[in-house]
Amino acid sequence: MGGNPLAHTSRPVAETVSGTSKMAAGVRVPRGFSVIRVRFWAGSRASHHLYLKEHRVRGASDVTRPQDRTLFVLNLPPYCTKECVRRLFSQCGPVTSVELQEKPGPGTKSEAQQSKFFPGRSSQGFRVAYVVFKSPAGLKSAGSLNLREPWVLSTSDHPVKTGLQKWIRDYRSNITDPGELQSDIDQFMQQHDQRVAEVEARAEEEDGVPDEEGWVKVTRRGRRPGFSRTEAGNLRAIQREKRKRAQKELLNFYSWQHRDSKREHIAQLRKKFEEDKQKIALMRAERKFKPY
């Protein structure tokens, strides 16, 4: 790609649209976006369209994506990497950071929090990008691009690997050095042990010490960890509690309770005796064979 693409002043392929969608060089441009053409390499006859827009979030402020310096890019092809996006938009001004995502939205995790040994599965489809420039001038320059020739993504100095070369690169990047991985694990465990020790030391200092209002914080130190119960386990626990409660009840504790229970028992015996007498009399009356 020869010459400076920003120096062309002929009929623009990129046209900023405000209001409804509009046609620019045969391409329907979404509302509020501008469009630029890109090609995979200089000999490609087919071109691809990227849609650009200044990143603005209503009623929110993001430190990593300042609204006066962040460019939102749609329709990035899968083979376009962060380095490729940085190289392209560095022609508009110095680029501070580039973030690629599967769809628009807040950032997931910072690069410092992601593991370099297990980066996770990369997206296989088209993506979006958030390009942060060093100054607002870079964002203005990107929003007013008037290009006659499309940008080239893969050059001899900066090739974009695809196909078999990309598979070989991805395979080699997945091979982890055991020594380096063990060193990273040891460092993580040291930081974890240090955080746990600080939490325990802070809990020991606060244990039993009342606050300004006189309340004492009760911690779970020294207690057995609780386990979640199932529904059947809850029923068994309730039945055990009922049996324990029944055993603890004091029966016939008072003398009047003892007299009442004894009187009721005698009445039940008399009633049973009268019922038995009636049954015997009925059986005798129903006998048909009378030997005497």
Rank of each mutant, 00 (worst) to 15 (best):
K277C: 10
P291C: 02
L71K: 05
Q190N: 09
S135Q: 13
R202N: 09
F253W: 08
E102I: 00
K277D: 06
V27S: 00
K166A: 08
S183H: 14
S173A: 15
K134R: 12
T96Q: 15
K109T: 09
I266G: 05
W41D: 12
S228A: 15
I266T: 11
G125Q: 11
T96E: 10
R195W: 11
F126K: 15
H48N: 04
G26W: 00
S61E: 14
E102K: 11
R259P: 04
R58Y: 14
E15V: 09
S122A: 13
R229K: 15
Q91E: 12
A203Q: 08
H258S: 10
I36E: 02
V152H: 04
K262L: 13
Q278A: 12
S156I: 03
R270D: 05
E275P: 03
R58D: 14
P94A: 11
L269I: 04
D207N: 13
A7D: 11
V132E: 00
E206A: 14
V196S: 04
G125W: 08
A25T: 09
Q187G: 11
Q91T: 12
R169E: 13
S122E: 15
R220N: 08
P106F: 06
V199K: 13
F126D: 11
D157M: 05
S18K: 10
F89M: 02
G93S: 10
R87V: 05
K109C: 12
W151A: 04
V209R: 06
D68H: 01
L76Y: 03
V38W: 03
Q182L: 15
S156L: 05
H55Y: 13
